[in-house]
Design a protein around this nucleic acid. Structure first.
Length: 411
DNA sequence: TGTGCCTGCCC
DNA sequence: ATTCTGC
DNA sequence: GCAGAATGGGCAGGCACA
């Protein structure tokens, strides 16, 4: 990847990797390897050290690590800032001389998809030149509810943009200021970035500041997390008050805590394996890349998720061996599935799977009705339930109940 | 014109 | 997105 | 600790084909 290329440049000049960090910073601030190369080879390291972001070159976004409890986060950061985590898509907005461009998390130009955001930014941000970030999502003004990610994502489109924008206006929750009127803000501490962002935010319906507090105790952190979750957010992101904005890195300056990390707030269900896939790359050697799993509905087994993560290499070998022994040439008669695994398996083995939430599905047969079923979002294997048989698996009815519960929980 | 399959990008 | 593994 | 490589659900859009 880019790291290898940058290392190579460092070698040509210094004979080792010593220039890597600075070259990488230049790349992270512009997402433009060509530009970094040109500057490096024509002007040298002095110009690389002087690199700063500028409008219309997307900055590679800072990323967050994760921890599982508020206590662990506080141990790591001490007193810190905490922001609500919104379940939409991340946008980086650039504005200069009245022109606005919007970039996605992967630095794609997505301006044309969000005319409503563009208009809101022009109207609300009191700046000549700015780069800032936030999360955009669909929002119901009347009920105050956020729409599920599945709805928000339909705004990511090429055609029918203005009609869709009218039907489903977005709201953008801003959380980072990176550049303002010629000044690079990425090296400023978080508290300064946030203060400045607050100062330049004008009133309006589109852009708002992300919910934010400063906490001085683990208890306060936990309380804010609970508030966020009960108001329908995914969780929180905690930030080191004195840390700069570290572009393109997963540093412990940002730590996320999602509601699904907690045992109590996650959906953990027991599913039956009905098939498996051989897998690609490294997994070829284990003979298993993933599992097709189902819940129980009377005498039937209806698919609810594929599981492709959470097992160790040893576990993959074990699954391959044990499942091969109960394989079936064809789909077992009692299984309802639109998907075809590489190997069908008699529904016998139960595994515990964790998921962030339950979503409507066009491909999974659980609770299938009117061409739509239910599926798990972010399914991962927790453990094998050797103590359970197929009859003890979670039922379709229980999944429906969890789905209903989840809908009402976010009010 | 409509359907199904595949890809790329969101998470 | 989550998770595991080699470095 | 970090980077890389496996993998998940699902959306819009492109393309082949009926």
């Amino acid at each position: 990847g880019e790291a290898t290329i940058i290392d190579a440049w460092s070698f040509t000049e210094a004979g080792d990797k010593s220039l890597r960090v600075e070259l990488e910073r230049a790349f992270n601030l512009t997402s433009d390897l060509g530009l970094v190369a040109e500057v490096f080879f024509t002007k040298g390291m002095g110009a690389i050290r002087a690199f700063k972001p500028h409008p219309f070159s997307p900055i590679r976004p800072a990323l967050a690590e994760r921890l599982n409890t508020a206590a662990e986060i506080f141990e790591k950061l001490g007193a810190c800032a905490v922001e609500g985590k919104y379940d939409g898509f991340r946008l980086q907005v650039h504005m200069s001389a009245g022109k606005v461009e919007i970039y996605s998390r992967k630095q794609e130009r997505v301006t044309h998809m969000f005319p409503d955001v563009v208009a809101g930014v022009k109207k609300q941000m009191r700046a000549r030149e700015i780069i800032f970030e936030g999360e955009a999502l669909a929002y119901n003004e009347d009920t105050g509810e956020f729409l599920p990610f599945q709805e928000t994502i339909t705004r990511k489109r090429k055609y029918g943009v203005s009609k869709k924008a009218e039907e489903m206006p977005l709201r953008m929750f801003a959380f980072e200021l990176l550049y303002l009127d010629g000044k690079d803000w990425t090296n400023e501490p978080y508290h300064a970035r946030r203060k400045k962002l607050t100062e330049i935010m004008g009133k309006g319906d589109v852009v708002a500041l992300a919910k934010n507090v400063i906490v001085k105790t683990p208890k306060a952190l936990q309380k804010f997390f609970d508030e966020c979750v009960s108001s329908g957010l995914e969780g929180i992101v905690a930030k080191d008050l004195s840390a700069p904005y570290v572009a393109g890195a997963r540093k412990f300056a940002w730590i996320k805590l999602k509601r699904s990390y907690s045992e109590k707030l996650a959906d953990t269900i027991d599913v039956v394996i009905v098939g498996f896939y051989y897998g690609k790359g490294k997994r070829t050697e284990f003979g298993l890349g993933g599992l097709l799993t189902a819940v129980k509905a009377g005498d039937r087994f209806r698919t609810v998720a594929k599981i492709g993560t959470g097992f160790s290499e040893a576990q993959m070998r074990e699954f391959h061996d044990s499942l091969s022994k109960i394989s079936s040439k064809q789909k077992p008669a009692e299984v309802d599935s639109l998907l075809t695994p590489d190997v069908w398996v008699k529904p016998r083995v139960v595994v515990e799977v964790k998921a962030d939430e339950i979503t409507r599905s066009p491909v999974h047969k659980c609770a299938w009705k009117d061409n739509e079923g239910l599926a798990l979002r972010f399914p991962r294997l927790m453990r094998v339930r050797t103590d359970k048989g197929a009859d003890d698996a979670t039922t379709e009815k229980e999944v429906v109940e969890l789905y209903e519960l989840q809908k009402h929980a976010s009010a």
